[in-house]
Design a protein around this nucleic acid. Structure first.
Lengths: 135, 135
DNA sequence: TATAAATGCTGTAGCAGCTACAGGGTCAAG
DNA sequence: CTTGACCCTGTAGCTGCTACAGCATTTATA
């Protein structure tokens, strides 16, 4: 039953996972994916497993997880013993971070909107935005 | 009328502007603030003008402007001729960026919230979050 | 005035999370 | 067997700081 596993080049994996090929190498150095076996000439030969890993990582990145957090997620998903609670907790912490960021950005949005509005209504030579920033 | 201008040390300026003292040096190298004159021993002697500049920069940073954008804002505020329109436009572009970021973060927030909810309602041994990220 | 503590100086390295080279080598199609 | 497309490594760059090391200077205290 020794099945010859299909392998993929970096470019192929990059395309199918939507992860930049340089980034794939970076993730390997970072320790997020297993180092693939090499061809006689030293080229990396990725497997389906790598494709799955990279997809996992891309999805996690899209949800704003840091590489460090993703490392933890991967470790936890390997554990499988009572890890779900920890995954949940990690996600919950991350969610709080996101909420904080949204709050901060909304504050910026509000202030900027007001400043621009004042600018539009402006008749004096001075710029209200510069004034606000300087005051 | 040669008034001896009051000067401040880096630590003093850092304290009064709420900008880290190392950051002040960084801003100088970056070209955001004018290089202050030096004491005989080579120590920087900041003026009130520097304090105002740094406050301007801090405020702008709090509104999420990049250092590059702030450089433009400073250039425009020095111009004073029909610069208000340009300041307004720069701010409007920046506002769009912020809105995009908020949108992205809200999407993350929504997905994460749903995932965590599923986790809480979970009875199977598998972790729904890991499942979603892997799928 | 002498000394010590506090601050300042420069340059450089580190953080995240990539991306983009240079200067080679390899692989697959024709 | 050549050509072109890809891959290899290591390193530097990006943003916006922050944190050293290894000194010099300034300021406060005795």
């Amino acid at each position: 039953m020794s099945t010859k596993a299909t392998t993929y080049s970096r470019a192929q994996v990059a395309k199918s996972t939507d992860v930049n090929s340089e980034t794939i190498r970076y993730y390997e150095n970072y320790g997020l994916i297993k180092p693939p076996t090499r061809s006689a000439g030293g080229h990396r030969m990725y497997t389906k497993e790598h494709v799955l890993s990279l997809t996992f990582i891309r999805r996690s990145r899209e949800l704003g997880f840091t590489l460090h957090e993703i490392k933890s997620l991967i470790d936890l998903s390997d554990d499988s013993e009572k890890s779900c609670t920890q995954v949940r907790d990690l996600s919950a912490i991350h969610l709080t971070d996101i909420k904080t960021k949204i709050k901060d950005l909304k504050k910026m949005e509000k202030t900027l909107t007001e400043m621009i509005k004042q600018c539009d209504a402006n008749t004096s030579p001075a710029c209200p935005i510069i004034d606000v920033l300087s005051s």
